[in-house]
Amino acid sequence: MNAPVVDLSGVRKTYRSGSIEFEALRGIDMQIAGGEYVAVIGPSGSGKSTLMNLLGCLDTPTEGTYLLGGEDVSRMTEAQLAEVRNRRIGFVFQQFHLLSSLPAWRNVELPLVYAGVPRADRRDRAVAALEKVGLGDRVENRPGELSGGQQQRVAVARALVTEPDIILADEPTGNLDSGSTEAVLGLLEELHGSGRTIVLITHEHDVAAQADRNLVIRDGLITDDRLVGAR
C-alpha cells in the first residue's frame, strides 16, 4: 500500500457554546491511501459534517493530528490552511457553490487564480477540465443557463483543475434528480479510474455503494470500515 494521503490519529473535535460543550468527534483514527474511493456514511448528527470540515482543512481538530499528504495540518493558521486547501483539496458541494455572475470557465479557473497561475494558462486548463467532465461546449455559459447536473459537473471540473491530492465531495448528489445523480456518480467513478483519490460524504447507502470502501460514522466514532464493490 502507498503512503496514506489522509492520516488521522486520535482526532477529537469539541464545540463550545457558552458553558455547554459538545464533542462532535471522539477519537477518530483513519487512513486513506492514494487512489482510493472512500465513502463516509452516517446519519445527520453523527459528526459526518465535522469530519468533512476537518478533512477539507476548513477547520482544525481540538486534539489529535491530521497529516494530509505527509503534511501536519492540524495546527495551521487560517492563511496556511487556505494555501493547503488550494493546493491539495478539490471540493464538490451539495449546493454546487458556483458564482452566478461568471461563465463556466471562470468558475473553474478560480482555484488557479488563488494559486497564482498565469492568466494565459488558466483558461487552457479550465477548458481542458470542462472537456474532461463533458462540458467542452458550455465553456462560456453562466451557471443560470445550465441544468443542475451540468452545474455540478462544472463544480467537479473546478475541483479537478488544480490536480489536488483528494477530491472531497460533500453530498454531491443531494440536490440532483436520479438521472443527473447517475451522471455525476459516473463521473466520479471515471475520475477514480484515472487514479484520483476521492472522499465522498453521504447519508445515502446506494450512493455510498459506488465507492470501494465505506466508513460508517456514528456518534463521533467510526463504527465500521469495510470494503465494498465487486472490483
Binding site: G56, L58, A82, H97, L99
Partner: peptide, 11 residues
C-alpha cells in the same frame, strides 16, 4: 467559497 478554494483572509 473563495476561502474554500484557497483565498486567504488577506486576499
Amino acid at each position: 467559497l473563495r476561502k474554500a478554494l484557497g483565498a486567504t483572509p488577506a486576499v
